[in-house]
Protein backbone atom coordinates (compact mmCIF):
# COMPACT_ATOMS: atom_id res chain seq x y z
CA UNK A 1 0.00 0.00 0.00
CA UNK A 2 1.42 3.37 -0.95
CA UNK A 3 1.78 5.97 1.73
CA UNK A 4 -0.34 8.89 0.53
CA UNK A 5 1.61 12.05 -0.07
CA UNK A 6 0.61 15.10 1.86
CA UNK A 7 0.33 17.37 -1.16
CA UNK A 8 -2.60 15.36 -2.45
CA UNK A 9 -4.60 15.83 0.71
CA UNK A 10 -7.66 17.90 0.38
CA UNK A 11 -7.44 20.09 3.48
CA UNK A 12 -11.20 20.13 4.09
CA UNK A 13 -11.84 16.43 4.02
CA UNK A 14 -11.41 13.70 6.58
CA UNK A 15 -8.60 11.53 5.33
CA UNK A 16 -9.37 8.59 7.55
CA UNK A 17 -12.58 6.77 8.38
CA UNK A 18 -14.31 8.52 11.25
CA UNK A 19 -14.80 6.28 14.25
CA UNK A 20 -16.07 3.79 14.81
CA UNK A 21 -14.81 2.46 11.49
CA UNK A 22 -16.79 0.03 9.35
CA UNK A 23 -14.06 -2.57 9.55
CA UNK A 24 -10.71 -3.41 11.14
CA UNK A 25 -7.81 -1.17 10.10
CA UNK A 26 -6.33 -4.18 8.33
CA UNK A 27 -9.13 -3.75 5.81
CA UNK A 28 -8.43 -0.10 5.16
CA UNK A 29 -7.02 1.08 1.89
CA UNK A 30 -5.40 4.27 0.78
CA UNK A 31 -7.00 5.60 -2.34
CA UNK A 32 -6.16 8.52 -4.55
CA UNK A 33 -8.86 9.74 -6.81
CA UNK A 34 -9.56 12.88 -8.70
CA UNK A 35 -13.06 14.03 -7.86
CA UNK A 36 -14.48 16.76 -10.06
CA UNK A 37 -10.97 17.86 -10.91
CA UNK A 38 -9.65 18.01 -7.36
CA UNK A 39 -7.19 15.43 -6.08
CA UNK A 40 -8.46 13.49 -3.09
CA UNK A 41 -6.47 11.12 -0.98
CA UNK A 42 -8.22 9.09 1.67
CA UNK A 43 -8.24 5.91 3.65
CA UNK A 44 -11.39 3.87 3.13
CA UNK A 45 -12.71 0.65 4.55
CA UNK A 46 -12.85 -2.14 2.01
CA UNK A 47 -16.64 -2.36 2.09
CA UNK A 48 -17.39 1.35 1.78
CA UNK A 49 -19.47 1.97 -1.32
CA UNK A 50 -18.26 4.60 -3.72
CA UNK A 51 -21.59 6.41 -3.50
CA UNK A 52 -21.33 6.59 0.30
CA UNK A 53 -17.76 7.82 0.01
CA UNK A 54 -18.88 10.61 -2.31
CA UNK A 55 -22.02 11.52 -0.40
CA UNK A 56 -21.04 11.11 3.21
CA UNK A 57 -17.26 11.45 3.27
CA UNK A 58 -16.88 14.13 0.61
CA UNK A 59 -20.30 15.76 1.07
CA UNK A 60 -21.15 15.49 -2.63
CA UNK A 61 -24.81 14.71 -2.09
CA UNK A 62 -25.90 15.45 -5.65
CA UNK A 63 -25.40 11.77 -6.49
CA UNK A 64 -28.48 9.96 -5.20
CA UNK A 65 -29.15 6.42 -4.03
CA UNK A 66 -32.39 5.12 -5.49
CA UNK A 67 -32.18 1.36 -5.16
CA UNK A 68 -28.75 0.04 -4.09
CA UNK A 69 -29.48 -2.73 -6.58
CA UNK A 70 -27.97 -1.22 -9.69
CA UNK A 71 -31.28 -0.95 -11.48
CA UNK A 72 -32.50 2.64 -11.16
CA UNK A 73 -29.47 4.60 -12.31
CA UNK A 74 -29.93 7.52 -9.88
CA UNK A 75 -26.37 7.03 -8.61
CA UNK A 76 -24.76 7.14 -12.05
CA UNK A 77 -21.42 8.96 -12.10
CA UNK A 78 -18.50 9.03 -14.51
CA UNK A 79 -15.39 7.02 -13.69
CA UNK A 80 -12.70 7.73 -16.26
CA UNK A 81 -15.42 9.05 -18.55
CA UNK A 82 -17.61 5.97 -18.37
CA UNK A 83 -21.03 5.91 -16.73
CA UNK A 84 -20.88 3.78 -13.59
CA UNK A 85 -23.39 2.79 -10.90
CA UNK A 86 -21.73 4.15 -7.78
CA UNK A 87 -24.04 2.05 -5.57
CA UNK A 88 -22.50 -1.12 -6.97
CA UNK A 89 -18.92 0.12 -6.87
CA UNK A 90 -16.65 0.06 -3.86
CA UNK A 91 -14.74 3.21 -3.07
CA UNK A 92 -11.51 1.25 -3.22
CA UNK A 93 -12.26 0.32 -6.83
CA UNK A 94 -12.04 3.98 -7.76
CA UNK A 95 -8.40 4.18 -6.68
CA UNK A 96 -6.43 6.00 -9.35
CA UNK A 97 -9.51 7.07 -11.27
CA UNK A 98 -10.98 10.29 -12.44
CA UNK A 99 -14.44 10.57 -10.90
CA UNK A 100 -17.00 13.12 -11.98
CA UNK A 101 -20.39 13.82 -10.41
CA UNK A 102 -23.29 16.11 -11.22
CA UNK A 103 -21.64 18.86 -9.18
CA UNK A 104 -19.02 19.18 -11.94
CA UNK A 105 -21.42 19.99 -14.75
CA UNK A 106 -21.98 23.71 -14.27
CA UNK A 107 -18.23 24.26 -14.50
CA UNK A 108 -18.43 27.89 -15.45
CA UNK A 109 -21.08 28.64 -12.86
CA UNK A 110 -23.72 28.69 -15.56
CA UNK A 111 -25.80 25.58 -16.25
CA UNK A 112 -24.32 23.71 -19.20
CA UNK A 113 -26.21 22.95 -22.39
CA UNK A 114 -27.48 19.61 -21.13
CA UNK A 115 -28.70 21.02 -17.83
CA UNK A 116 -30.37 23.93 -19.63
CA UNK A 117 -32.16 21.53 -21.94
CA UNK A 118 -33.66 19.67 -18.99
CA UNK A 119 -34.89 22.96 -17.57
CA UNK A 120 -36.26 24.26 -20.84
CA UNK A 121 -38.02 21.02 -21.79
CA UNK A 122 -39.32 20.49 -18.23
CA UNK A 123 -37.46 17.19 -18.23
CA UNK A 124 -37.63 16.83 -14.46
CA UNK A 125 -40.11 17.01 -11.64
CA UNK A 126 -38.90 15.91 -8.21
CA UNK A 127 -35.33 16.00 -9.47
CA UNK A 128 -34.18 12.91 -7.62
CA UNK A 129 -33.29 10.87 -10.70
CA UNK A 130 -32.02 13.91 -12.62
CA UNK A 131 -28.34 13.82 -11.60
CA UNK A 132 -28.03 10.20 -12.73
CA UNK A 133 -29.70 10.98 -16.03
CA UNK A 134 -27.47 14.00 -16.59
CA UNK A 135 -24.38 11.88 -15.99
CA UNK A 136 -25.60 9.10 -18.31
CA UNK A 137 -26.15 11.68 -21.02
CA UNK A 138 -22.82 13.34 -20.32
CA UNK A 139 -21.13 10.00 -20.90
CA UNK A 140 -22.88 9.76 -24.23
CA UNK A 141 -22.21 13.36 -25.17
CA UNK A 142 -18.51 13.02 -24.52
CA UNK A 143 -18.19 9.74 -26.37
CA UNK A 144 -17.14 9.67 -29.97
CA UNK A 145 -20.11 7.65 -31.10
CA UNK A 146 -22.74 8.97 -33.44
CA UNK A 147 -25.54 10.30 -31.26
CA UNK A 148 -28.74 9.43 -33.01
CA UNK A 149 -32.09 8.71 -31.46
CA UNK A 150 -31.21 5.05 -30.89
CA UNK A 151 -28.08 5.98 -28.96
CA UNK A 152 -30.05 8.41 -26.80
CA UNK A 153 -32.72 5.84 -26.06
CA UNK A 154 -30.12 3.24 -25.22
CA UNK A 155 -28.28 5.53 -22.83
CA UNK A 156 -31.52 6.66 -21.16
CA UNK A 157 -32.64 3.06 -20.85
CA UNK A 158 -30.64 2.55 -17.69
CA UNK A 159 -32.23 5.38 -15.75
CA UNK A 160 -35.61 5.15 -14.09
CA UNK A 161 -37.79 8.21 -13.59
CA UNK A 162 -41.14 7.92 -11.84
CA UNK A 163 -42.42 11.48 -12.28
CA UNK A 164 -42.03 12.67 -15.84
CA UNK A 165 -43.12 9.72 -17.93
CA UNK A 166 -39.87 10.22 -19.88
CA UNK A 167 -41.42 12.22 -22.72
CA UNK A 168 -39.78 15.49 -21.69
CA UNK A 169 -36.58 13.69 -20.73
CA UNK A 170 -36.34 12.34 -24.27
CA UNK A 171 -37.02 15.80 -25.65
CA UNK A 172 -34.36 17.37 -23.43
CA UNK A 173 -31.79 14.73 -24.30
CA UNK A 174 -32.47 15.14 -28.02
CA UNK A 175 -32.26 18.89 -27.77
CA UNK A 176 -28.91 18.76 -26.02
CA UNK A 177 -27.20 15.74 -27.51
CA UNK A 178 -28.51 14.81 -30.93
CA UNK A 179 -25.77 15.00 -33.51
CA UNK A 180 -25.26 13.17 -36.74
CA UNK A 181 -21.49 13.38 -37.01
CA UNK A 182 -18.66 13.70 -34.53
CA UNK A 183 -18.85 16.59 -32.12
CA UNK A 184 -17.70 20.11 -33.05
CA UNK A 185 -14.00 20.74 -32.43
CA UNK A 186 -14.53 23.62 -30.02
CA UNK A 187 -16.18 21.48 -27.36
CA UNK A 188 -14.30 18.78 -25.55
CA UNK A 189 -12.17 17.94 -28.56
CA UNK A 190 -9.51 16.68 -26.19
CA UNK A 191 -11.74 13.74 -25.29
CA UNK A 192 -11.96 12.50 -28.86
CA UNK A 193 -8.74 10.55 -28.91
Amino acid sequence: MNEPTADLNHPQLPRRPLGPPLSEPSCWHDIRVTVNGAPVCAQVESRLLLVDFLRHRLGLTGTHVGCEQGSCGACTILVDGVGVRSCLTLAVQADGSDVRTVESLAESGELNRLQRAFHEEHGMQCGFCTPGILMSMTALEESSEVIDDDAIMEHLGGNLCRCTGYVNIRNAARRACLRERSRPVDEGADRDA
Binding site: G62, T101, E103, L105, L111, Q115, F118, M124, G127, T130
Partner: peptide
Protein backbone atom coordinates in the same frame (compact mmCIF):
# COMPACT_ATOMS: atom_id res chain seq x y z
CA UNK B 1 -34.89 23.41 -11.42
CA UNK B 2 -31.59 25.26 -11.10
CA UNK B 3 -30.66 23.89 -7.70
CA UNK B 4 -31.72 20.36 -8.58
CA UNK B 5 -29.75 20.40 -11.83
CA UNK B 6 -26.59 21.34 -9.96
CA UNK B 7 -26.95 18.47 -7.49
CA UNK B 8 -27.86 20.93 -4.76
CA UNK B 9 -31.19 19.45 -3.79
Amino acid sequence: DDRLLRGQG
